[in-house]
Design a protein around this nucleic acid. Structure first.
Lengths: 358, 358
DNA sequence: TCCCCCCCAGAAATCGTTCTCTCGCGCTAA
DNA sequence: TTAGCGCGAGAGAACGATTTCTGGGGGGGA
């Protein structure tokens, strides 16, 4: 493990000054072709590779972007992370990944730590739409910061989808399937996405059934919570027409509990998820869910952070359109048993951009 | 976005030298309590935070570990990544995450790039047990490197499980359930895990049925491949007693195709997965799979890399024991129809450490 | 032919730390 | 009283790159 080659040694071997080596490699200035060739020869012969840390110290750019997400293991995030990493790699930049474990203090810590690293920018999915604010603002003052999926500070960069509209599409679809009475299984509304989805749920369900708008079960993002919530719904002895879940993991738990309790989905109750994770199409019944263009979002976030680093446009909200992916879990099978037939005119004209899968 | 505070300014405000500030903050030497207090006061008042890049340049330690995995989106990896990140965070270290997209050239590229970053160590799941070797060796010469899950160079650090033994447990379990004829759905055996699992499959299935040992379908790690493989199996018109999959994603596809083809699992054919991802318990039927202690592996890998950085013990293979998690997809339901009853004495005494779930 | 200007290469400063080296002070022992 | 020693703080040299500044040589114009 001997010392790596330095630019100084390359210069010596090439018989030029370190400055010239630097100029050759960065291509910043015209260099005498002869010296240039000698330099490149030496670089090649010695296998020289520039020390990025030294470069970073001098130039103040690290070509590194920090990313903080609430839970790496939630299958929603890896897809975004992958897209982000791929896009960064294209530009010879790297990803410093952190997991805030949905904890505001930890999140603030991580942001400070990333700033200490002199990262060029931050991609953040803030865990708490209120409590995360101060840390987010602090970080954004120092370095370009893009909120992704979740948002805490409205007037900073944000990449995501209109959650409320997406939830409206879910409810519209369920209504078309004949549902009138709903229950909602959410994760903590401290997450902006949960709050917005809930708002969408309440606003659109209220018109159909006032009581349903209040039938909200709030927990965390986990299968266990979905199980638990479904059990509560069953115990209350008042099965709704549909259980709307704020995330796929909850829906997995809900489906599981319903099966164990002998409640048939979609025959007796419809179920929907959110995020269209890898789980959704794999379940039985396959799960209707809302797909966000995660890859695009990841790419776009990187592009914004990079352009902001070069003094790009002022912060803006970049909203992508979500897509309702309708699967078995929300398709009424026994049309006759419902007040509104799913084959009615209304059902033929979906209100949202929806495609049908599986 | 004005310049951050430097140690020089802190020194000036505190009325001491930069060296003293450094000493106070690092706690490396005794410092006069008065100067110490003045320093800390200035640090506090100015909100000084050390520039990690400068520290790294000087000390040659970045407190950063690079990790390269073949596919972030494969739900197996995020769990490991999360554990790694958590363990690193405990020691005030950070994670530079890269996705090799299962491509050897890209992987080599990423390794070089990580070395340029002066990372303190590398965690790698090499995508090709042969072709990855030279890059892995090259990297390991420069910096502590731990192979995790997959392995390319046997005499370097490795953290994983005995894949062959784990596969043996799968086959033993299926044999106990009365299976004699098998088919195997694998991903590319260029991955060491796939190769070892295949070896386990072949070795143990051969004893039961020579032809089954050759019934191997090799593709990639994806649901689509599982679908495709199952269709081929069906088309061949010779349904085995069990389809053994080298990963959970393949199993998802297999289950899906079987359902669509009207083949009942586990009534007509048993199916097993591998990795015990979040998918396994969520499927219908729930999927028997092999659970590796991913969190432990992640933690251990970090510890090895850190201790190796301090000149720890020579490379060693750290094998954890995998656990066969038996679920519905491999439990024979119609005992009477099989030659060996699942309630026979043999079935009561499983050969491997297996627990029963769900 | 001479002067001026431009271009290119090298010297040296710089980025923000850490750390070695040096020096001064105070205390102890002879 | 003085020599020696130990401790602790500051000056300054690294770390490995980039970049400004400076100077020399060559070419073009008068």
């Amino acid at each position: 493990m001997d010392r790596p080659i330095t630019i100084r040694e390359v210069a010596e071997v090439a018989g030029v000054s370190p400055a010239t080596v630097s100029r050759v490699l960065s291509g910043s200035t015209r260099v005498n072709p002869v010296l240039r060739a000698k330099t490149l020869g030496a670089v090649e012969r010695l296998g020289y590779r520039a020390n990025r840390v030294a470069q970073a110290l001098r130039t103040r750019v690290t070509n590194t972007v920090g990313m903080v997400v609430p839970n790496i293991a939630n299958p929603f995030f890896p897809v975004i992370i992958q897209a982000v990493e791929a896009e960064l790699h294209k530009h010879d930049a790297r990803l410093l990944l952190c997991d805030s474990a949905d904890d505001v203090a930890q999140e603030a810590d991580l942001l400070r730590s990333l700033l200490d690293q002199q990262i060029d920018g931050i991609l953040l999915s803030p865990c708490d739409c209120i409590a995360s604010r101060s840390a987010v603002r602090m970080a954004a003052e120092q370095v370009p910061l893009v909120q992704i999926d979740r948002v805490a500070v409205r007037d900073l960069h944000y990449v995501g989808v209109d959650q409320e509209a997406a939830m409206a599409a879910v409810i519209a679809h369920l209504a078309e399937e004949g549902c009138r009475r709903f229950a909602y299984v959410s994760f903590s509304v401290r997450a902006s996405t949960a709050a917005e989805r809930l708002r969408g749920y309440v606003r659109h369900v209220r018109r159909l059934d006032a009581k349903s708008a209040e039938r909200v079960y709030s927990g965390d993002v986990s299968i266990a919570w979905g199980r638990e919530a479904a059990l509560r719904i069953v115990e209350e002895g008042d099965l709704p027409d549909a259980v709307v879940c704020a995330d796929d993991l909850a829906a997995v738990g809900v489906l599981e509990s319903f099966r164990r309790e002998g409640i048939a989905v979609p025959e007796e109750v419809l179920v929907t998820g959110f995020d269209d994770t890898i789980l959704a199409p794999a379940l039985t019944p396959s799960l209707t869910s809302v797909r966000q263009p995660m890859e695009e979002m990841g790419r776009e976030a990187v592009q914004i952070v990079r352009s902001a680093a070069r003094g790009g446009p002022p912060p803006r909200r970049q909203l992508f359109s979500a897509e309702l992916v309708i699967r078995e879990s929300s398709r009424r099978v026994r049309a006759a048993s419902r007040r509104v037939s799913p084959y009615s005119a209304r059902a033929q004209r979906p209100r949202s951009t929806a495609r049908t899968a599986r």
